[in-house]
Amino acid sequence: MIEFLKQFFTWWNSRTLGLWLYTWRKGEFVGEDEFGNRYYRAPSALPQSIAERRWVVYNGYAEASMIPPGWHGWMHHRQANPPTKNDYQPREWEKPHQPNLTGTARAYRPPGSIMGSTWPKVAKPDYEAWRPE
């Protein structure tokens, strides 16, 4: 019952009931990435704009930065074929994915930040004001 309510009310937690029904009715499974995200496509209702509609069902929390580079190109219609058909190999300079930690307790906070663990340093003046003697 809890899972049904999550699907009905939370769009950020995997997929909603509407997306599940749309995927079931029209979606064609294309592939899955290393994070467990599943990719689908369907013919577009407006063929004069794009040939097909493409979407992802996230494994867990819906975070757009969890899409690997190969799948990102396919999702944004930069590549006609998905990485499963192209035998996509990441470039040697590409780094592995790191989650976006903004808004969490593990977010980066530079030294002196008011959200940091240490007190902000008192600013030292860049000049000394002239005082008449």
Rank of each mutant, 00 (worst) to 15 (best):
H76R: 01
E34G: 12
E92Q: 08
L46C: 13
Q7Y: 02
T23P: 05
A51K: 13
M75S: 05
G70P: 08
F8R: 05
W11D: 15
F9P: 11
I50A: 06
N13V: 07
K85G: 07
P82D: 08
N37V: 01
V30A: 02
Q79K: 14
N86G: 05
L19R: 05
Q7C: 05
H97N: 06
E92I: 02
R25A: 14
F29T: 06
S49N: 11
Y61R: 10
R53L: 15
K26D: 13
W74H: 08
F29R: 05
N81M: 13
K85I: 09
P47F: 04
E32H: 04
A42T: 08
K95I: 03
W55I: 01
A62F: 01
I67N: 05
K6T: 01
L46N: 12
Q89T: 10
G36H: 08
S65P: 00
A45Y: 03
Q89K: 14
Q79F: 15
L17D: 04
S14C: 14
G27M: 04
P90W: 01
W11F: 10
E52C: 07
N86P: 05
R25Q: 07
H77L: 13
E92V: 06
P82C: 05
P47D: 06
F35V: 03
L21W: 13
L21H: 11
H76W: 04
T10V: 06
D87W: 02
E94S: 00
P43A: 14
S14M: 09
D87H: 01
T16D: 08
Y39P: 03
E94M: 10
Q48E: 14
Y61N: 13
R38F: 05
W93V: 11
Q89G: 02
T23E: 09
V56P: 02
P83G: 12
T23N: 06
P96N: 09
G31K: 04
K6G: 06
K6A: 09
H72S: 14
P82F: 10
S44R: 12
E32C: 11
Q7I: 00
K6R: 07
V30H: 03
K85D: 15
S49T: 06
S14E: 13
P82N: 07
P68D: 11
Q7W: 02
Y22L: 15
H77I: 05
P82H: 09
W11H: 12
G18M: 09
R15Y: 11
G31L: 10
K95D: 11
T16L: 09
W12P: 05
Q79V: 13
E63Y: 12
F29W: 08
Q48Y: 09
P83R: 11
V30L: 03
P83N: 10
